[in-house]
Computed example of a mutant assay.
Amino acid sequence: MCPPTARYRLTSPIGVISDTHGLLRDEALVLLQGCDLILHLGDVGNKEDDSAILERLDAMAPVHCVRGNIDKASWATRLPMHQDIIVNGQRLHLVHRLEDFDPETPCDAILHGHSHKPRNEYLAGKLLFNPGAAGKRRFKLPITLGKLWIDQRGIRSAIIHLPLYIPGVAAAEH
């Protein structure tokens, strides 16, 4: 796991995932391949062995993670409630619940989870980005994650729907 404050110079995309709730789908791992940094926006899981999700992600790329409301296991107590990182000069603020964001926080993007509803929009000059939920399905919401590209043009972002079937990859729990 990465330190709570860090600066990065990246040319590859940043993977953004949230609300895995104890399930790291093979499809998510495939879509995160090639990312130089992975951000997990909380609700990793509430069991002791759910820390393995962060370990698997960390084997792919450096990981920053914030604590979600279900992250109650002993390993999760080390996770911060929010983090600020700088990538290619852009300030990213990570928080699980958007209502826990302090509007006085200087940032270019607010990355949040919790609602399981994907969000990708600019308000008042700041990117509000929720990758949705990549773990267990909630209601009829889609299974998604996100990617960010940060360069001289600024921050570009995308919500990616997990196909839930990739040839040659075992199907995950739906």
Rank of each mutant, 00 (worst) to 15 (best):
Q152V: 08
P13K: 11
T105Q: 12
P3K: 15
V44E: 00
N46I: 03
L92N: 06
L57M: 12
A170V: 07
L29I: 15
G22R: 03
H82C: 14
P142Y: 02
D151S: 09
G168Q: 08
I70C: 09
D100R: 05
P103A: 03
L41K: 01
R91S: 08
A59C: 03
H174N: 12
L41G: 08
M1N: 07
G34R: 06
Y8L: 11
R78T: 15
P13D: 00
F101R: 06
K72N: 14
G22M: 00
G89T: 06
G22W: 04
P62W: 02
L37K: 01
I17A: 12
I166C: 11
F139N: 12
L141S: 10
L98I: 13
L79D: 00
G113K: 03
D36M: 02
P118F: 08
L128Y: 10
R153D: 15
I143E: 06
I86H: 07
E48I: 15
W149G: 01
P13A: 05
G113T: 06
E121S: 14
R119V: 12
Q83Y: 00
G45C: 04
A158W: 09
A73D: 03
Q152W: 06
R97F: 01
G168K: 03
S51E: 15
F129M: 11
R91K: 15
A76L: 02
G22E: 06
E173G: 09
L10I: 02
Q33R: 13
V87E: 02
D151P: 03
A170S: 13
P118C: 10
E99A: 14
I38P: 04
S12Y: 07
I38C: 05
S12C: 09
H112N: 13
R78N: 12
N46E: 14
E121H: 09
R67K: 12
P4S: 06
T11D: 15
H82R: 06
A73M: 10
P62S: 07
H114E: 04
P142K: 08
F101I: 01
F139I: 06
L98Q: 04
Y8D: 05
L145C: 14
R67S: 07
A28N: 11
F139G: 10
H114V: 02
G15S: 01
R156E: 13
Q152H: 13
P62L: 03
G146D: 10
G135R: 02
W75T: 04
P4H: 09
L23S: 06
D102K: 05
L98W: 04
I53E: 04
R67D: 01
L127F: 02
L145G: 11
V63N: 01
A172P: 01
G42Y: 04
L148Q: 02
E173S: 14
G34E: 05
R137N: 03
L148R: 00
D19R: 10
H174E: 12
N130R: 02
P80G: 04
T5L: 11
P131V: 08
I14M: 01
D19P: 05
G154S: 13
K136V: 15
L41M: 10
L123M: 11
